[in-house]
Design a protein around this nucleic acid. Sequence first.
DNA 1: TTCGATGCAAATAGTTTGCATTCTA
DNA 2: TAGAATGCAAACTATTTGCATCGAA
Lengths: 144, 144
Amino acid sequence: VTPTADAEERYMAALRGSGGRVTAPRRAVVMAFLASGGHVTAEDLAAAVQAEQPDVALSTVYRTMDALQRAGLVEQLHVGHGPAVYHLAEHHHRHLVCQACGRVIDVSEGDFDELVDLVATRFGFILDARHFALPGWCRSCAEA
Amino acid sequence: VTPTADAEERYMAALRGSGGRVTAPRRAVVMAFLASGGHVTAEDLAAAVQAEQPDVALSTVYRTMDALQRAGLVEQLHVGHGPAVYHLAEHHHRHLVCQACGRVIDVSEGDFDELVDLVATRFGFILDARHFALPGWCRSCAEA
DNA sequence: TTCGATGCAAATAGTTTGCATTCTA
DNA sequence: TAGAATGCAAACTATTTGCATCGAA
């Protein structure tokens, strides 16, 4: 039993959880997502799934990822203009996104806390960068 | 001569600047924007303009605000889901947006620098929150 | 009189939804 | 066999663009 197969079963269990059902399209979407390692768009997932099962609809990808979000297994992240990306919720990291090259930089929750504290004491505002990445410039793009 | 009339003429001069022309629709959009005090959507501006001149098109609002952005007088800000808002570029502030109530909190460039410094030293990343507001929770929503 | 700006409609991107049908539990 | 999930097409939101026409300089 590979780790991915374990993860797959956890995902299926979550889908079955609140009266949901496991179908071939849902299984294919979950497998594509786990294979990708996260940071994929709905379009990416649809393309991967459709390579095997051509008539799985894009709307099924959105609906499946929605169900996984409600189950708390997946998070959706907005990364500037353009489509949102999905990533594993268990990687509790925050994101920085370079406006020049589009690279997404992961920051652990712990490292990010210092930032949250500063914003909280200075502005009385609880920064929450889980659903939107913080925009800026990565080192190499900033130098150019 | 009111201060607004002064500002209006600066805007018209900017539009005339690089070979542009001043037209009745452009004048109406600028007046609506100045009257609003900033943080308005294109739709808001179109509604204000159309109250007086019903057949000014929404696309004209977008194109006029584009021209003002290129002239450096106006900035466009993304504030979570939903439409972007325009604000005066001369107010060089950064923005925080509450994900619960939608309130936009202005932070002066100077106060924001501390944050930028922290992110730069910790993550080697130059935070630039001019075009995207930083998401989170304002004090009253965080308490509820 | 030139060429930039306009109105309108259509295109675009990303996502959501309505509905008849399919298939899991 | 009840009702959740699907495919498909259409709707939707925010924005952009093509194009014939209008009008400022």
